[in-house]
């Protein structure tokens, strides 16, 4: 039972980190209807800046720099490429983001090489004992920070002018533009926000118990894709739920690996995708996604 609880708590905190990534993904999709495959490399960029800067300026300044860098990269991708691509379908824009992703990931993994970069976080490998279960401090912080950020964003969507503009654009871009919403700014800010969230997530993905930032981190970030889609691509609540489902599934499957030996080694990595397939079979637009009714 203690093992189960421990795995569950770990799963929830990892899930919260996935939810952060998925949230950025959903924000971009809502604001611009672009499925952003660059997300994994934004995350890698943020993590890389933190890892390289922390010996020079200390962890907190490096974290701020990493968040700013990832936001800047996101904004630049929107401003320099997507805004200038005049294509008929959103599907082609998705492929453009794949092109950008190939560029960024290749360059970043080349720079990282075979190294495993530490992030110099203040929590180290300390663990917290809560009754029968032990949890890494980083996991607790991750859960708290992710929860705070997600709540802040949900509130911002509801109550700030930026959030209203974003929601109006998602609802009907043309009408929103006629009402004075500046679409360029909305999508630029969406990309910047998504980059910033990805950098925070990168930090939590690379600290204890993970050894550090290496070239496999981008693959870990891939798990946010099923998180975003199984919750529903256009739903912030869905991103939250999807992240938690993916995190818990992954952690439980890895934790009980020895009992699940018939499924093979490393089932934890494939499990989120299996869950995604099952959910998509039952609900093609995700758990919380809106099913667009078409009027003909």
């Amino acid at each position: 039972m203690a093992v189960f609880l421990e795995l569950l708590v770990n799963g929830i905190s990892v899930g919260a980190v996935y939810a952060l990534i998925a949230l950025g993904f959903v924000v971009i999709f809502k604001a611009t209807e672009v499925v952003n495959f660059t997300h994994a490399s934004l995350l890698l960029a943020g993590g890389y800046v933190i890892a390289r800067l922390h010996p020079l300026v200390g962890f907190w300044a490096a974290l701020a720099a990493g968040i700013a860098a990832a936001a800047l990269v996101g904004a630049l991708v929107e401003f320099l490429i997507l805004r200038r691509a005049h294509v008929g379908s959103r599907g082609v824009l998705a492929i453009v983001t794949i092109g950008v992703d190939i560029l960024l990931t290749t360059e970043l993994t080349r720079r990282i090489g075979t190294e495993v970069l530490a992030l110099g976080d203040p929590w180290g490998d300390r663990v917290l004992r809560l009754g029968p279960i032990t949890v890494a401090e980083t996991r607790v912080v991750a859960l708290a920070v992710a929860a705070a950020l997600i709540v802040a964003f949900l509130l911002a969507f509801k109550f700030t002018g930026w959030g209203v503009a974003m929601r109006a654009t998602a609802e009907d871009a043309e009408t929103a533009a006629l009402m004075g919403v500046r679409l360029g700014r909305v999508s630029l800010s969406a990309w910047a926000v998504a980059g910033a969230l990805a950098a925070v997530a990168a930090m939590f993905l690379c600290v204890f118990p993970t050894p550090g930032l290496d070239r496999g981190t981008a693959a870990a970030a891939m798990k946010a894709f099923p998180a975003a889609i199984l919750g529903g691509l256009d739903s912030t609540t869905g991103a939250l739920a999807g992240g938690l489902i993916v995190g818990v599934t992954e952690t439980l499957m890895s934790g009980y690996q020895s009992e699940l030996a018939f499924l093979g080694r490393g089932i934890g990595d494939a499990a989120p995708f299996l869950v995604m397939i099952v959910i998509l079979l039952l609900r093609p637009s995700g758990l919380f996604g809106t099913k667009e009714p078409a009027r003909v």
Binding site: V34, V35, F37, S89, R90, G91, A94, M222, F225, P226, A228, I229, L233, F273, L274, M276, I277, L280
Partner: peptide, 11 residues
């Protein structure tokens, strides 16, 4: 449809 399927095929 479209990019939605793209993510699903990652599976």
């Amino acid at each position: 449809k479209g990019a939605y399927l793209g993510i699903a095929t990652l599976a």
